[in-house]
């Protein structure tokens, strides 16, 4: 493995806030502050070091950045003011687009489900989102999941957070085409900003 800056440059060019990676001084306060710390393989500061060390595949296929819940503890504490949360999401996004992200990673799967659900009608259909998430591993498991979560589901219904009628179509945006155009344009701008041809 070589200590070329190639991968660092790639990250700087393609990853949201990637230009901050070089500013890390390896204090580790982000790693210690992350509530999901014990659950991932590489801490943020270690990811940054790996980027500098050119460990491209290990970084992009890591599940670490998918574990971020955006609690912002790391950003608040980072003595170098690195926007760590954003970098982690940026890395996840980039790995996903390159197809290097870990395949069955649950956060990633959910994110994909969420996106597909959203893009379909321009609004999130909570019920369908919930169901497609529950039933991602087949029908039987879906029922089990739904039963396990039924109290919460009923509570949400009572609080009018979920409407069972949404199952039947649900409501969407009036100008769905326009919405899709907006999304396409946004991607185009982002890609241009990052110098990518197509994600």
């Amino acid at each position: 493995m070589s200590y070329r800056n190639d991968f660092l440059k790639e990250v700087e060019e393609n990853v949201e806030e990637g230009e901050w990676v070089k500013m890390c001084m390896q204090c580790g306060v982000c790693a210690g502050s992350c509530p999901f710390g014990p659950h991932w393989e590489h801490s943020p500061q270690k990811i940054f070091m790996m980027i500098r060390a050119g460990e491209r595949i290990q970084v992009l296929s890591s599940d670490s950045m998918w574990m971020c819940t955006s609690c912002y503890n790391c950003i608040v504490r980072c003595p170098r003011k690195l926007p760590i949360t954003h970098i982690m999401h940026g890395l996840a996004n980039y790995a996903h687009r390159l197809g290097l992200a870990p395949k069955g990673q649950p956060t990633r799967v959910f994110a994909k489900t969420f996106w597909d659900n959203l893009v379909k009608t321009g609004r999130v259909n909570e019920l369908k989102l919930t169901l497609s998430h529950y039933f991602r591993d087949g029908f039987i498991q879906g029922i089990r999941n739904a039963l396990a979560m039924k109290d919460i589901g009923l509570g949400m219904m009572k609080a009018r957070r979920i409407n069972p009628m949404e199952l039947f179509g649900g409501h969407g945006l009036q100008d769905l085409e326009g919405f899709h155009a907006i999304v396409a344009k946004a991607r185009e701008i982002e890609d241009r900003k990052k110098g990518l041809k197509n994600g």
Partner: peptide
Amino acid sequence: LKGVDTEGYHR
């Protein structure tokens, strides 16, 4: 005290 020893990553 909670944190991570960054020399080799030890919590």
